[in-house]
């Protein structure tokens, strides 16, 4: 095979073409996202003339200022933050606790509990019966709808259990001799040792909470209780023009902001937290995903 020399190393044709393909894939992956970032930092009216591709032509942060001075959006971000933090923490504590309990051989009823759980992985009531349940529980237009129905997940339980099994039994035994009960062992010994699996599940669940817009559409009618993803859904997919352009504070120069540029700024702000976090958790979630796929 023909080979050329790049920076002193021999590179054959295959590697060269393969590297180009990989760079191309990276480009088409990043560029659409980058384009949104560029538009969000470009003067809104200037962007409407077109031709802004790589870098903001007329740099402006007015769209962000407009966004963050808008009560509705701030509240939506607040709801997103609330459901992501509270929803993820309760999900982890609850699912991990049940996972630990269901794992104990001497637990009476263990077989029944596990069987009931496995069934939920294959069957569910579907959209309408679930909706009726939520309605009957009084969770419509209630912030708890973001927490309770997603507090537990049997797939995640299996990932937790696979991790717990690797923890040496001797640790639990010596704690038991010291008179600690199951809950003490779980909270003081098992949980602190489980940070890798907690990081994995926290990422999965946190991303789901932050990105989910469907709960906000189906279970919440009150705008004030909807997360930013649902807000974006209304603006983007249903083309409802935002209230933002109407009651904008005078301090923001209207000429620099369009509904499009605010939309972009909101999208970028709504994506930023996740993009910041996931690369650092990569080695954890790859492992967690594998355990989940082997067992599931």
């Amino acid at each position: 095979m023909a080979s050329i020399r790049i920076t002193g190393r021999r590179v054959d044709g295959f590697t060269l073409i393969n590297t180009i393909i990989m760079l191309f894939i990276c480009f088409i992956t990043i560029y659409p996202v980058w384009y949104a970032v560029v538009l969000s930092f470009n003067d809104g009216n200037d962007a409407m003339m077109g031709g802004v591709y790589w870098w903001p032509r007329v740099f402006s942060i007015e769209s962000y200022r407009a966004m963050f001075s808008h009560q509705g959006i701030l509240r939506a971000f607040g709801v997103s933050l609330f459901r992501t933090v509270v929803g993820t923490v309760t999900h982890i504590l609850f699912t991990a606790m049940v996972a630990y309990a269901f794992l104990q051989r001497h637990l009476t009823g263990r077989k029944l509990y596990m069987t009931l759980g496995v069934i939920t992985m294959f069957f569910n009531g579907g959209l309408i019966p679930t909706f009726l349940l939520i309605k009957n529980l009084g969770l419509i237009d209630n912030l708890l709808v973001y927490i309770l129905p997603s507090m537990f997940n049997f797939f995640h339980l299996i990932i937790f259990q696979a991790f717990f099994r690797e923890i040496p039994k001797s640790l639990e035994e010596s704690a038991m001799i010291d008179g600690m009960n199951s809950f003490g062992i779980f909270s003081r010994i098992i949980l602190p040792l489980s940070m890798p699996v907690i990081a994995t599940i926290a990422l999965f669940q946190g991303v789901w909470h932050w990105n989910d817009f469907f709960f906000g559409i189906i279970y919440v009618n009150e705008m004030d209780l909807q997360p930013v993803a649902t807000y974006l859904y209304r603006v983007i997919a249903q083309n409802q023009s935002s209230q933002m352009m109407v009651n904008m504070p005078a301090a923001i120069s209207r000429s620099a902001v369009t509904s499009q540029s605010i939309k972009m700024a909101t999208m970028v702000a709504a994506t930023f937290p996740i993009v910041l976090v996931y690369p650092f958790l990569q080695k954890y979630f790859v492992k967690g995903l594998l355990v989940g796929s082997i067992k599931g």
Binding site: T29, I30, P32, V33, Y35, A36, V207, W210, N211, D212, F213, A229, L232, Y233, I236, A237, K263, M264, M267, A270, T271, I274, V275, Y278
Partner: peptide
């Protein structure tokens, strides 16, 4: 990266 984007954001693009 795109896996972590919400469909809403992708739709917005």
């Amino acid at each position: 990266l795109p896996h972590f984007l919400s469909w809403v954001v992708l739709g917005g693009i």
